[in-house]
Design a protein around this nucleic acid. Structure first.
Length: 373
RNA sequence: GGAGAGAUACCCGAGUUGGCCAAAGGGGGCAGACUGUAAAUCUGCUGGCAUUGCCUUCGAAGGUUCGAAUCCUUCUCUCUCCA
């Protein structure tokens, strides 16, 4: 029995969407779920208590970043990531595969692994599947991700194939090196935007019997419709009795579209990052709170929102906080954006329950204009 | 009262051997981007009008010159030091 299991509650009969429960060592998680990202053992600007109040159930940490600082040995010494950061809920750690992509010119990829130059001090580090498993077992999240390569887009068929096949071999090595029984290891399907490569990747990984499968290498600059198309043919390649996790996706429309295509888990830095940069999600679309038009607007960020920020503060005040570089401003927008997405997922689950997700999606689009209010 | 220094665009401030100056740089302002976080970050715009281009700008007025933020004269104001 794996440390993490997926319980299917309801399969929608109007789409591939499904309702489920992810059982983890730190409690159950209703799916589909949005997972806030806390790269360096903190969801930027939020305390664990605030995350709990917002309704976050499971959050992310990052292997590469925590290995560099403070070091996985220190976190092991602290009693693991949960204890170190005082978060009692489930945690998932990304493997550093995304950093292979985002730290592009600071690394070299070989069959053995990836040689990174630290973005902090330039020192050299070798990440192999075995090393990554050692780090993730020390960090101790409920779910560890296999070490993969997130390929940039666009990429040639030849490179996508070569990389995907290597990721499959790395998955095998991760599986072999992963020995911690109270922790689940998820595999990651790659293959860029090539259907036969996604199929091959799934054929490689599914027999390895990971307790969960992620779809990686998406939302790396491709058109949304292309991503949806890849999801259309990739999700059905994954086992029904395991959770499916779409990595790095988190705009409201993508969460709905992903859910409709059978995705159970999402994570994304988008809500927290744009919040710190002064943009918030609202029912009507994105809103840039720094804009002059909100100078004397004493209404809440989103009149339909019931988060702490919207129930307490005005646009004019939050704009003022941003314009004066006051730290409270980005904390309030972060609270709002996370609440917005977590609440959206709650609404999505309710819609699945009522077999009304398609209607929910149409209603969503009829309100959500990207140019805001 | 005497001696000296200076006034530059929203603010501060460079430029003062005359042309390459609509005028550096910073701040402020305005707008945009952000999707497994090298991000409280980054990018663009910030005299006017239209397409290159043209027009009005460097305290005020006048002058020298083909050409002035830069040189000359007068005036106005500010600051520092000495009485």
């Amino acid at each position: 029995m794996s440390a993490v299991t997926y319980e299917l509650i309801k399969q929608s009969n109007e789409s591939k969407a499904r309702l489920g429960i992810l059982h983890t060592p730190h409690g159950p998680v209703e799916t589909p779920v949005f997972m806030p990202v806390g790269t360096q053992a903190t969801v930027k600007a939020m305390s664990p208590r605030e995350l709990e109040e917002i309704g976050a159930r499971i959050i992310l940490g990052n292997t590469y970043h925590l290995y560099l600082r403070p070091g996985h040995e220190l976190i092991r010494e602290a009693g693991g990531l949960h204890s170190f950061m005082a978060w009692d809920g489930p945690i998932l750690t990304d493997s550093g595969g995304f950093q292979v992509f985002s730290l592009g010119d600071l690394r070299k990829i070989t069959e053995e692994g990836v040689e990174f130059r630290s973005h902090i001090d330039g020192s050299k580090h070798l990440f192999t599947p075995e090393k990554v498993m050692e780090i993730e077992m020390a960090l101790g999240p409920d779910i560890a991700m296999a070490f993969d390569e997130c390929v940039e887009y666009p990429t040639t068929y030849e490179y996508a194939k070569k990389s995907m096949e290597r990721t499959s071999r790395w998955a095998e090595r991760c599986l072999k090196a992963h020995t911690r029984k109270d922790q689940a290891l998820f595999g990651i399907v790659q293959g860029s935007m090539y259907r036969d490569l996604r199929e091959q990747s799934a054929r490689d990984l599914v027999p390895m019997d990971f307790p969960g499968y992620a779809i990686g290498g998406l939302s790396v600059g491709e058109e949304k419709n292309l991503m949806y198309e890849v999801l259309d043919y990739t999700v059905p390649l994954l086992p029904d009795n395991k959770p499916r996790y779409l990595m790095g996706v988190g705009s409201p429309d993508c969460l709905i579209e992903g859910t409709l295509r059978g995705v159970d888990m999402f994570d994304c830095v988008l809500p927290t990052r744009i919040a710190r940069n002064g943009t918030v999600f609202t029912k009507m679309g994105r809103l840039v709170i720094r804009n002059a038009k909100y100078k004397s607007d004493f209404s809440p960020l989103d009149p339909y929102c019931t988060c702490y920020t919207c129930q307490t503060f005005t646009r004019a005040y939050i704009r003022h906080l941003f314009n004066t570089d006051e730290i409270l401003g980005l904390r309030l927008t972060t609270i709002h954006n996370l609440y917005y997405l977590i609440n959206l997922m709650k609404d999505i689950r309710q819609a699945i329950r009522e077999d009304a997700l398609l209607e929910f999606r149409d209603e969503f689009y009829s309100n959500y204009q990207n140019d805001g209010l």
